[in-house]
Design a protein around this nucleic acid. Structure first.
Lengths: 111, 111
DNA sequence: CTAACGTACAACCAAATGGTTGTAGATGAG
DNA sequence: CTCATCTACAACCATTTGGTTGTACGTTAG
């Protein structure tokens, strides 16, 4: 979750995700589109890859970057759930929540 | 947007947001709930505050932290729109998108 | 008033980020 | 084969991050 949100917290990376949704692009083609070095774009792609948002697939000497639509969906669902937690539906889920995300052992201090 | 996502890309901070949705808590009370120093929690709150997710309100000698539910809603909407952009609805919005988020002057290189 | 509490902020530190350049390995074109 | 292209990766650098401790200040309790 941390990784996912961090990956999305960068304009260039969000733009790469958007670009690679409609037709994959090679890393060098991507790099040409941004005012930074090839290596820098390579790193951004690596961050997205680690977060599971894109995949790379070799094709000849090019490496095609493709956004994983399922990952995008999963990302959205995760965010939805986060927001659901935050809005009214905290009710009895607090307990569940405690086990998943906020598993601080000193939860008793809450109120 | 960068700021918002970055603020959310940390377990402790998300937990603070969650905690401060149901009844505000003083910074020191929050600090007591995490295995880190008071100052560290203070910094996390500052990050959330800069991102507009929480507000602080002095009450006596305590500073009460309260999650801004509107901000949370706006955050969600922003994420929804991001996802909407990513999913099918890119159609004719590409142009609009270009002006807002992906305003790279070399957009012509895209295809 | 004095002591304790809650907060703010500066200084410092290690590690991570986001960028650079340079070098080297595959692969395709001619 | 040779050369240009695409990629990978290491080394380096400045800045930010996430944490620490220490100090100072305002406020409330006794």
């Amino acid at each position: 979750m941390d990784q996912l949100l961090h990956a999305l917290a960068d304009t260039t990376r969000r733009d790469i995700v958007r670009r690679c949704l409609t037709g994959e692009a090679s890393v060098s083609r991507l790099a040409a589109a941004y005012p930074m070095s090839f290596a820098a774009v390579q790193k951004h792609v690596a961050v997205l890859e680690r977060a599971g948002l894109v995949t790379k697939q070799r094709s000849g000497r090019e490496q095609l970057v493709r956004t994983d639509r399922d990952a995008v969906r999963r990302a959205r669902e995760a965010l939805d759930q986060l927001e659901a937690t935050w809005r009214g539906r905290v009710d009895r889920m607090s307990e569940l929540l405690t086990e998943t995300e906020g598993n601080r052992e000193d939860e008793r201090d809450e109120r």
